[in-house]
Amino acid sequence: MTTTSTTKPLIEMRDVRKSFGTYDVLNGIALDVREGGVVCIIGPSGSGKSTILRCINGLIPVNSGTIRVGDFAVEAMKTDRELIALRHQVAMVFQQYNLFPHRTVMQNLTMAPIQVLKENPADVRERALKLLAKVRLTGKEDAYPSQLSGGQQQRVAIARALAMQPRVILFDEVTAALDPEMVSEVLNVIRDLAGEGMTCVLVTHEMRFAQEVADEVFFTDRGVIVERGPPKQLFQSPNDPRLKDFLDKVL
């Protein structure tokens, strides 16, 4: 994929607001991600981090504001057909893996490309085998998700996202449900992806990892981006007192 860092960003959120009932989750989010960029979103629980990701791929409709992904105006999308085209470009990996428990590892990877994107099954299978090798799970093709460890399931989920050949992958606290010894095997895969130029948006509590892989870090609190910047600046010389307070607690 060619880098187009000088042109307009791949993802552009402007003044995005979202409330659940009377509870305001997002109070005017602005966020840019350039193609090939790695962006980390950090912040306290309930600050709206996961909601930002779900707005980007249209899982949650927004109340107001604009979200552009490539040429898609996400906030205007209503029908399944529109959303399919968007989700072909924006894949997501979840905290709880969200794999299909009734299908094998191989089927988890091939189902959506075949059933949703109507691709040729033989091509998809070939691609899936390569992806399984990439996430170091060769030989697990016929296993069912619940026969795998958490770290292995999460790597299947990443391979499943990649099988859609997306332009960007959203990672929603993908290591939060894992045992400590399995965190690194998942982070290694994400590090590889970031190194290969895949556009990644990560919501994470792994501060050291954020510092290492991110081009830019966004700190959210109470539904707004309080501070943003390169990781070094944000972690070592934070300006906002809320960010300082947060970093004191987590580092």
């Binding site: 399919i84 709880q96 959506a112």
Partner: peptide
């Protein structure tokens, strides 16, 4: 979560039901 996983992969509501 399983349903959300399907939706995130572009499955329509009817496809999510069926598959």
């Amino acid at each position: 979560q399983t349903v959300e996983g399907a939706r995130s992969l572009g499955y329509s509501r009817v496809q999510t039901f069926r598959y």
